[in-house]
């Protein structure tokens, strides 16, 4: 079996894996980081979004071995010293979740879009959320939270 090594949330992670192991399986089942969710398993819902080398990707549509040598960031790696990341804080403040299942992916997507796009407006946020599905909120408060976090982080 191939050995895969990467950095996850700043810590080295290495394991023997079957080549067919998905990145999300590696993260959840081998590292026990279950904050990254599997929603649809058909790469549409975005609950599994993590960052690989600074870019948001769907970890259910990527093999663990493809992340060899990469820096991976999951929802567990966002908070610093017990302080929520500004996007996490904004989701709480603006009630950007109901059941919470899509939230890890929403937040990882939001952090990525805020990094890439300095002047976010509502239309852009909604457009950028195309790959993240929420079945509870109707998206309104998610969009509000992302816009608020974007303002705060500017």
């Amino acid at each position: 079996m191939p050995v895969v090594s990467m950095t996850v949330n700043g810590k080295p992670a290495s394991a023997d894996v079957e080549a067919r192991t998905l990145l999300v399986q590696f993260i959840r089942e081998r590292l026990g980081l279950t904050g990254t969710h599997v929603g649809c398993d058909t790469s549409q819902c975005g609950a599994c979004v993590v960052h690989v080398d600074g870019r948001a990707v769907k970890s259910c549509a990527m093999l663990a071995v493809q992340a060899e040598g990469a820096e991976v960031l999951t929802i567990e790696g966002l908070a610093r010293d017990g302080e929520l990341h500004p996007v996490q804080a904004a989701f709480r403040e603006h009630h950007g979740l109901q059941c919470g299942f899509c939230t890890p992916g929403m937040i990882m997507t939001a952090v990525d879009m805020i990094r890439r796009i300095p002047d976010l407006d509502e239309e852009t946020v909604r457009d950028e959320l195309e790959g993240n599905i929420c079945r509870c909120t109707g998206y309104h408060n998610i969009v509000k939270a992302i816009l608020a976090a974007s303002q705060e982080m500017r």
Binding site: S43, G46, R55, A56, T109, D112, M113, E130, G131
Partner: peptide
């Protein structure tokens, strides 16, 4: 094409 995460890959 697709969505932002798909476009990153």
């Amino acid at each position: 094409i697709g969505d932002p995460a798909v476009r990153h890959m």
